[in-house]
Amino acid sequence: MGLARYVIVRALLIIPTILLLYTLVFIVLRVLPGNPVLAALGTKNIPEEQLQAIMRELGLDKPLYQQYIEYLVNFLRGDMGYSMVVRGRPIASDITDRFPATLELSIWAIIVSFVLGVGIGYVAGRSRSSIVKHLARLYGSITYVLFIPALGLFLQLVFGLWLKVLPTGDRLSPGIYIKPITGMYTFDALIQGDLVAFIDAVKHIILPALTLGLVLSGPFTRLTLDNMEKVMESKIVIAYRSRGIREEAITRHVFRHTLIPVVTYLGLQFALLLGGAVLTETTFNWPGLGTYLVDKIMYRDYTAIQAVIIIFAFLVGLISLITDVLYALIDPRVRYQ
């Protein structure tokens, strides 16, 4: 079938991208800083023998090309090496602990941004008022440049400190426990039917998801609005009308056309999402990969930083694959090319 072949071809095309990003990260974090151990320890007054021992332990004494290949092979097997700072701690287990929190935040943020962004664009696109359209465009360009920590802290002040209706950090209140299944608390609580825990988890994720979602929603608004306008003026709409199709049905069909560029954009949006997640997590003490990365930056823990960033590279590849598939599902022309 067309679709299966398309997915396989796309998947193969992603591989060089991931390899390239891996190489780039390797150069930036292994080659640029000189000796990462010295940088991590922040001192040059360390006995040569001890330094050699640490280098050997972390596999940093081997030639660079060997490190380059070994790291990738191990990484693909799920072995991300050991922390340089917390000695003996496998990075992979840190990451599996932290990843669900980031994933949960990302999912909710994307939902918020999609509903908010596409919703506002859709309403403005259907509106006949040029003022509404103007305001929607302005919304799009201004939310896009909001500084995530500033917005997040502002929401914390308003909803956490003054109105006291929502918590300002962490994923759950003290005393609430959810048995991890997926590690994403809102979903786990739902699966287990624990309403109290679910409400608590939702309360904790509202502000972070809103912060990140609001910032990501702007481009969706503009894309949806621009394309609604473009398609509504196209011949397809006249053709539909000439057949007596009712306006609601036409708008529904047209909306599908406007989704094509929106979905294409979704892929790029995820890059923004991951960057934004780092800031959102730091702002809300959200214990995900972002706060992990920032913690490790404080200690210059190069092996851990490298692992997180390469994880991000893989995520980017995976997401662009998912976007391609979504794109093909919406637009049949892509599948059969």
Binding site: T17, L21, V25, V28, L29, L32, P33, G267, L268, A271, L272, L273, L274, G275, G276, V278, L279, L293, I297, R300, Y302, I305, I309, F312, A313, V316, S320
Partner: peptide, 15 residues
């Protein structure tokens, strides 16, 4: 395609 902020973080850490 890579998150620009994360790339900038990696570069600043390295430099």
């Amino acid at each position: 395609a890579f998150p620009s902020l994360i790339l900038a973080i990696a570069l600043s850490v390295a430099l």
